[in-house]
Amino acid sequence: MMTELSLNVLDVANNSIRADANLIEIAIRLHTKSDLLTIMIADNGCGMTKEQLSQVEDPFFTTRTTRGVGLGVPFFKQAALSTGGSFHMESMPGKGTIVTAVFCMSHIDCIPLGDINSTVYTLIITNNEIDFLYTYEVDGKRFQLDTREFRNILGDVPLNSPEVSAYIKSYLEENQKEVDAELSKTEKQ
């Protein structure tokens, strides 16, 4: 098992990378009133057939050849279901895959989200050929990081150059802090 949900996100997003996606969307949505945390990972990679899709939640199914088990999706699913939440996967060959996991945040078995910024940062700076659209939302207030938008501004300056990656890091941290301020407001009420 993972110690943070953000590690599950990193793991499942790596499936999108292996599926040759060039756009990966990650959305984290917290809704305090309903006590729900929704995590969505969508890609435009090679997708899966109905048959593969039905196998992917089985820990003893994997397409890799280096070992016989594939625990990424089963871990993520178990983490969601053990909080009384839900898990859903949709896929179309040639179109891509969408993974959605819902967590009941106050459930005792809910693993903390953890350092999600570190996950997004790692994905962006080590996958220069892939675009990412990241959304972080708390009770309707949100911020987004769209690497396509960043690339438009940057031209041929790469995202993993020191100056730009430092900017990405603080962009994630500062904007999350501001959106999280919404969370403490609700707590006070």
């Binding site: 098992m1 793991d11 996950t119 020191p162 430092a166």
Partner: peptide, 26 residues
């Protein structure tokens, strides 16, 4: 290595330490 096994064992902080140091040291 950033598969399930790597991530669960702590690969994310290792990767970030490497890329931070490579950038910091130019």
């Amino acid at each position: 290595g950033m598969a399930t096994c790597g991530i669960a064992s702590g690969a994310r902080p290792v990767l970030n330490a490497l890329s931070d140091a490579v950038q910091a040291k130019g």
